[in-house]
Amino acid sequence: MRALLLTLLVTCLPATAAELTIETPNGAHAWTTADLLAHPARTEIDIPQDVSYKRAMHYQAVPLATLLTGLKPDDTLQAVALDGFAAELQAAPLLAAQGARAWLAIEDPAHPWPPLGDEKPSAGPFYLVWTDPAAGRIVPEQWPFQIARLRYLAPIAQRFPALLPAADASPAVREGFLAFQKNCLACHRLNGAGDAAFGPDLNLPYSPTEYFADDFLGRYIRDPQSLRRWPQAKMPAFSREILDDDTLHHLIDYLRHMAKRKA
């Protein structure tokens, strides 16, 4: 495996700013908030429907691709947030200059962002946001906030073989595995495999396909609050614009398949 380490460390400085350190094969560079706000590619962007704030937001931001020198489209990155959320991100959409475009939003200490909710912090100091996300079918898990680290990853088959379907699995199950990586792995582990520490394991001790009857699992994924409502609920709804019906069925096929492959 070619040597590549890209680490983004966020260190909050009291009442001032944060520091962003990026390491690539070209060397390491530490960016303070002030450095990023003065970056020549820094601009102001409007996000009509911010995923985390659920309303229009205005940010000072830098195109993320300008900070990811040395990466290739088929590489995989992982954004690890301060709360344990760990989003697997394919590099190709992060590097794209057309269509859906990734931006590193930078919280200015002089003008802090609003909190995400009662007794919650803001999405800062660094937040991955997208312009024209529909063009790339960008899902909520690709909007990590409070980013603590961004690192290069080996292929998932090498890191977590316990997630893999059987060699003779159907095409639908294999499509479901891809959907699981994109939509679920940021929050959940399966068979104990994964880096997230946000949601429960989806196979141990039981798969949700074993305790949701009939079509209730699909309904739960579509709108969790319609079946289980409590103040601490964190799972987002997956609309058809994010997860179409066929993909949802394939995801459930994968979970049902993996229920027979418990670690």
Rank of each mutant, 00 (worst) to 15 (best):
residue 10 V to L: 10
residue 10 V to P: 10
residue 11 T to V: 14
residue 15 A to N: 12
residue 17 A to K: 10
residue 20 L to I: 05
residue 28 A to H: 04
residue 29 H to P: 00
residue 31 W to E: 00
residue 32 T to H: 04
residue 34 A to V: 15
residue 36 L to E: 01
residue 37 L to K: 08
residue 41 A to I: 00
residue 44 E to H: 00
residue 49 Q to C: 03
residue 54 K to D: 03
residue 60 Q to E: 04
residue 61 A to F: 05
residue 63 P to C: 04
residue 66 T to Y: 01
residue 66 T to C: 02
residue 72 K to F: 12
residue 74 D to M: 09
residue 77 L to C: 09
residue 78 Q to L: 13
residue 82 L to I: 11
residue 85 F to D: 10
residue 87 A to M: 13
residue 87 A to T: 13
residue 93 P to C: 09
residue 93 P to R: 13
residue 96 A to R: 10
residue 97 A to N: 07
residue 97 A to H: 12
residue 101 R to V: 13
residue 114 P to K: 02
residue 121 P to W: 06
residue 123 A to V: 04
residue 127 Y to A: 02
residue 128 L to V: 08
residue 132 D to A: 14
residue 145 F to R: 12
residue 147 I to D: 03
residue 149 R to P: 01
residue 153 L to K: 15
residue 156 I to A: 14
residue 157 A to I: 06
residue 160 F to Y: 14
residue 162 A to E: 14
residue 164 L to E: 14
residue 164 L to T: 13
residue 172 A to W: 05
residue 178 L to W: 04
residue 179 A to V: 11
residue 185 L to Y: 01
residue 186 A to C: 07
residue 186 A to I: 06
residue 187 C to N: 11
residue 192 G to S: 13
residue 192 G to E: 14
residue 196 A to F: 07
residue 196 A to T: 06
residue 196 A to M: 07
residue 198 F to N: 07
residue 199 G to R: 10
residue 204 L to T: 14
residue 208 P to R: 03
residue 209 T to D: 03
residue 212 F to S: 13
residue 215 D to K: 03
residue 219 R to F: 03
residue 220 Y to S: 10
residue 229 R to K: 12
residue 232 Q to T: 12
residue 232 Q to F: 05
residue 236 P to G: 07
residue 246 D to M: 08
residue 246 D to A: 15
residue 251 L to D: 13
residue 257 H to C: 06
residue 260 K to Y: 04
residue 262 K to A: 03
